[in-house]
């Protein structure tokens, strides 16, 4: 007990507490920084595109290197030094076709996602429930002088359009998804579309467990069902979906493309799956 009546200050105890506190602070800070960050979900077409790009890159590197060697034996006789004739690199035509796939596939995935989100009818039902015109006017339904429909309709329309804008949906572009998919597919010639299908077959033969790519392949082969396209149009408040029976039926059966939007966040390491590092160009 000190003579001045004050409390005894236990310095070693304070140091110990301070050190412990510092330790916990550092530990929690360190732990927070070393927490595994969940990878951003990759787009369903990403494994296929990465696979194709990797192979392209490897083939490009081999061809560039081999062409240098070809030049080295292009003049067997030192006396006859004619300028070697360099033909057009025909493989570049193939790479140009692939470029069409890289442009089209994200578009197809977006269409599939929209179809899945809006095509089931669930969205339209929730939308209907949330329409402000419906619930604002509910108490005054039956009042003779109050024209419910005249009030509710503009409210609902404004609400729908605002929500769709917020969701990044373009009514003009997305009202008829079948037509949008068709437009995208027609940007690629029939031969090149067939080649794309063959690439998908090759990819799925090599990596049979890749579900997102399988789903995308099924979607591209079958397209959307008429009911799905109409569901989307209905959800968007426009009934402009193609009335003709589409050749594309968006298969949402368990064995089909139900999982088109399922992110492949879990690294597949078993046989038949893509390697974790998709862009392994330099390996």
């Amino acid at each position: 007990m000190p003579s001045d009546g004050g409390e005894t200050v236990n310095i070693p105890s304070l140091i110990r507490k301070g050190a412990a506190g510092l330790f916990f602070f550092l530990a929690t800070t360190f732990a927070a920084h070393t927490q595994p960050v969940a990878p951003a979900p990759q787009s369903p077409e990403a494994p296929f595109a990465a696979w194709l790009m990797n192979n392209e890159a490897r083939a490009m590197a081999i061809l560039a290197s081999d062409r240098l060697l070809s030049d080295r034996i292009s003049e067997p006789f030192g006396l006859l030094g004619a300028v070697p004739l360099s033909p057009a690199k025909s493989e570049q035509d193939i790479w140009a076709i692939h470029l069409q796939y890289y442009r089209f596939l994200p578009e197809a995935v977006e269409i599939a996602k929209l179809a899945r989100r809006f095509g089931s009818g669930e969205f339209a039902r929730v939308f209907d429930q949330a329409f402000p015109g419906n619930w604002i006017c509910a108490p005054v339904i039956g009042v003779p002088t109050f024209h419910v429909r005249e009030v509710a309709l503009p409210l609902n329309t404004a609400f729908r359009e605002s929500i769709l804008v917020c969701m990044g949906v373009d009514k003009d572009r997305d009202a008829d998804l079948t037509e949008r998919l068709k437009r995208g597919q027609e940007s690629i010639s029939a031969d090149n579309r067939r080649l794309q299908g063959q690439y998908f077959e090759t990819f799925l033969a090599l990596y049979p467990n890749n579900r997102p790519v399988r789903a995308l392949d099924v979607f591209l082969k079958n397209g959307m069902k008429k009911s799905t396209a109409q569901g989307v149009a209905s959800a968007l408040g426009l009934n402009t979906a193609s009335t003709t029976e589409s050749a594309f039926g968006f298969d949402e059966s368990p064995g089909g493309s139900a999982d088109t939007t399922a992110p492949a966040t879990e690294p597949d390491t078993d046989a038949g799956s893509m390697p974790a590092d998709l862009f392994n160009i330099l390996k």
């Binding site: 004619a82 360099s86 033909p87 690199k89 493989e91 035509d93 193939i94 080649l195």
Partner: peptide, 19 residues
């Protein structure tokens, strides 16, 4: 006289450039 031919094939798609 020099002639060069480059040909790339991928499944059924074939690209040919003679010169």
């Amino acid at each position: 006289i020099q002639r060069a031919k480059s040909e790339a094939t991928s499944n059924d798609v074939r690209s040919l450039h003679p010169m």
